[in-house]
């Protein structure tokens, strides 16, 4: 009973990426070079890491708005630790512990207190972005440990270490989601929480774990950022990172309603955003235009996602359209809809 190979779902967004990349390559001479490609990947790695973490959360049907704040928290915690004379690796450890703690808190409150993820993570976003400001009085803290710079500035051969790190994280998280029990549980909680619970899935564990993964990766992204600037900026990550990370995941096919999506898609989405911003930089388009263009890309991505959700509710796009034009009945699957529309009637 081996299935025929079908095209992966990510093929659509991947071809968009290739086309956009080629367009920029044709329009400028400096875009499609190895060094510029690595530069854009390096610049995109923070958003990509956040997007990967966000994917775990989105897959369960949640959302994590605190990832941007995690960047500042992580960088400042690392900087303060190193400033106090501790070795750089302890700075890394404390930074990751801090952002994972934020994730743990998010997960616990969301699961046990049943406050909507949007509210909880919105609140922790405020808290986690204030703490660095309070600790530093809004003054950036320089990092003196030279080894620390390797994270964001080091190279292994021609490849920036940060890009390599991103690749490793991407492969690892991809394997976790597609090949482990935990991964299956993440998808099942997002696909149908009640059914997953009845099938014996520990939904509490899944909820807490995905926000901790998201917290951890926002910590990694914060370290990357701090390492590139060699200081802990209390306002780092307060800009578009959060917005772009969710956008990357959604554009990459991760559903906002849970249960659908992949790391591959999220990474492609993040790279697409990196390509667009870098390409516009290279073409000397004012940076004010970037969020506008990326916003439009998101709009298209989310529209497609919504249509797909409509399809999941038994109405194909074509049928939805026809129904809107008043020509055809909407129901394509009467049998299964029966149990929903007529509870216990027959």
């Amino acid at each position: 009973m081996k299935a025929k190979r079908r095209l992966p779902d990510e093929i659509g967004i991947f071809s968009v990426l290739v086309v956009v990349y080629l367009i920029f390559g044709v329009m400028t001479t400096t875009f499609m070079t190895t060094s510029n490609t690595f530069t854009l990947l390096l610049n995109g790695s923070v958003v990509a890491l956040l997007a990967i973490g966000e994917t775990f959360v989105l897959l369960t049907g949640g959302i994590d708005l605190s990832v941007g704040a995690g960047i500042a928290l992580s960088g400042v915690v690392a900087a303060i630790t190193i400033q106090h004379g501790f070795p750089w690796y302890l700075g890394v450890l404390f930074a990751l512990a801090a952002t994972m703690a934020v994730g743990f808190f998010n997960g616990m409150v969301i699961h046990y207190v049943k406050v909507p993820p949007f509210i909880v993570t919105f609140a922790t976003m405020g808290v986690a972005s204030s703490i660095p400001l309070i600790l530093t009085k809004a003054v950036p803290i320089p990092i003196a440990a030279s080894q620390f710079s390797f994270i964001g500035q080091g190279f292994i051969g021609p490849i920036p270490f940060a890009v390599l790190l991103l690749a490793i994280v991407a492969i690892l998280t991809h394997l976790i989601l597609s090949r482990t029990v935990f991964g299956l549980h993440v998808y099942s909680v997002g696909g149908n929480r009640e059914a997953a619970r009845l099938a014996g899935v520990n939904t509490a564990k899944v909820d807490v774990a995905v926000y901790m993964v998201s917290g951890l990766l926002s910590g990694v992204a914060g370290l990357l950022d701090a390492s590139r600037l060699m200081s802990g900026y209390p306002t780092a990550g307060s800009g578009t990172s959060l917005f772009f990370s969710i956008a990357a995941a959604v554009v990459g096919g991760v559903s906002l309603f849970g249960g659908i999506g992949s790391i591959t898609g999220a990474v492609i989405g993040a790279v697409l955003i990196a390509v667009v911003s870098d390409g516009m930089d290279v073409m000397n388009v004012s940076s004010y235009w970037q969020p506008l263009v990326i916003g439009l890309i998101i709009l298209v991505g989310v529209t497609i996602d919504t249509l797909r959700a409509a399809q999941a509710q038994r109405t194909s796009f074509r049928q939805a359209l026809l129904a809107r034009l008043g020509r055809q009945a909407v129901h394509s699957d009467e049998k299964t809809s029966e149990s929903l529309t007529h509870k216990g009637a027959m």
């Binding site: 482990t180 029990v181 935990f182 299956l184 696909g191 009640e194 059914a195 009845l198 249960g259 659908i260």
Partner: peptide
């Protein structure tokens, strides 16, 4: 439809979901 299965997962994944712990080592399926 409401609480029986995970609609977007495959038949194989749905059937295996409650028993998955028998087919894993250290979390690896």
């Amino acid at each position: 439809k409401y609480d029986g299965f995970i609609p977007m997962l495959s038949t194989i994944q749905n059937v295996a979901l409650p028993s998955i712990s028998r087919y894993q080592t250290a979390g690896w399926v």
